[in-house]
Amino acid sequence: MTAPIAIVSALHEELAAVLALMPDEQQQTVGGRTFWRGHLHGHEVVAVLSGIGKVAAATTATVLIERFGVQRIVFTGVAGGLGDGVNVGDVVVAKQFLQHDMDASPIFARHEVPGYGRSTFDADAALTAQLARASEGMLRELPVHVPDAVRSAFGLHAPTCHRGLLISGDRFVSTTAESKALRRELPAALAVEMEGAAFAQVCHDYQVPLAVVRTISDRSDDSAHVDFPRFLREVASRYSAAIIDALLTRP
Rank of each mutant, 00 (worst) to 15 (best):
Glu112Asn: 12
Val88Asp: 01
Gly196Thr: 01
Leu49Arg: 13
Pro147Ile: 10
Ala125Phe: 11
Ser135Lys: 00
Ser50Asn: 07
Ser179Asp: 00
Ile7Tyr: 02
Ala188Val: 07
Glu66Thr: 05
Ile7Leu: 15
Glu141Thr: 07
Thr2Gly: 08
Leu139Ser: 00
Ala58Gln: 11
Val173Gln: 00
Glu193Gly: 04
His12Ser: 14
Thr176Gly: 10
Val48Leu: 04
Ser168Cys: 05
Ile52Lys: 07
Val91Glu: 01
Ser168Gly: 06
Tyr206Gln: 14
Arg33Lys: 15
Arg163Glu: 13
Val173Trp: 00
Asp101Tyr: 08
Ala16Trp: 06
Val208Gly: 05
Thr34Gly: 02
His100Ile: 00
Leu165Ser: 08
Arg250Leu: 11
Gln130Asn: 05
Val88Thr: 12
Glu112Gly: 07
Phe35Lys: 01
Thr249Gly: 11
Leu82Met: 10
His41Met: 08
Gly31Glu: 10
Ser217Asp: 09
His12Asp: 14
Pro229Phe: 09
Phe75Glu: 01
Ala242Asp: 10
Val45Met: 03
Leu247Asn: 06
Tyr206Cys: 10
Gly196Ala: 11
Gly89Asn: 06
Asp24Asn: 14
His157Pro: 02
Phe172Leu: 13
Pro106Ile: 10
Glu44Ser: 12
Leu186His: 00
Ala57Val: 02
Asp122Asn: 14
Gln71Lys: 14
Pro251Val: 03
Val70Pro: 00
Leu248Ala: 07
Ser168Ala: 02
Glu136Thr: 11
Arg219Asp: 01
Arg184His: 11
Val30Ser: 07
Gln28Arg: 15
Ala16Cys: 08
Ser220Glu: 01
Leu186Phe: 03
Met138Thr: 14
Val18Asn: 07
Val212Asn: 03
Ala181Met: 06
Gly115Asp: 09
Pro251Glu: 14
Asp148Tyr: 11
His39Ile: 02
Arg67Lys: 13
Ala149Gln: 14
Arg33Met: 12
Val93Arg: 01
Ile73Leu: 03
Leu127Asn: 09
Arg219Thr: 01
Gly169Trp: 05
Lys95Phe: 01
Ser135Cys: 14
Val113Glu: 10
Val78Tyr: 00
Ala191Pro: 06
Arg133Tyr: 04
Val212Gln: 11
Tyr239Phe: 15
Pro187Glu: 06
Gly69Met: 07
Phe97Val: 04
Ile243Asn: 05
Tyr239Gly: 09
Thr60Lys: 05
Glu44Trp: 00
Ala56Thr: 02
Val113Trp: 09
Leu49Gln: 15
Ala6Glu: 03
Ser237Asn: 10
Gln207Cys: 08
Val150Ala: 10
Ala132Gly: 03
Ala189Ile: 02
Ile7Thr: 06
Leu165Trp: 08
Ala177Pro: 03
Ser168Val: 01
Pro4Trp: 10
Arg219Gln: 10
Leu190Asn: 00
Gly77Met: 07
Asp221Val: 02
Ala246Lys: 09
Glu44His: 13
Ser119Ala: 15
Pro114Leu: 09
Arg171Ile: 08
Ala58Ser: 15
Asp122Arg: 09
Gly32Thr: 11
Ile107Pro: 00
Leu139Trp: 04
Val45Phe: 03
Leu40Ile: 06
Gly53His: 09
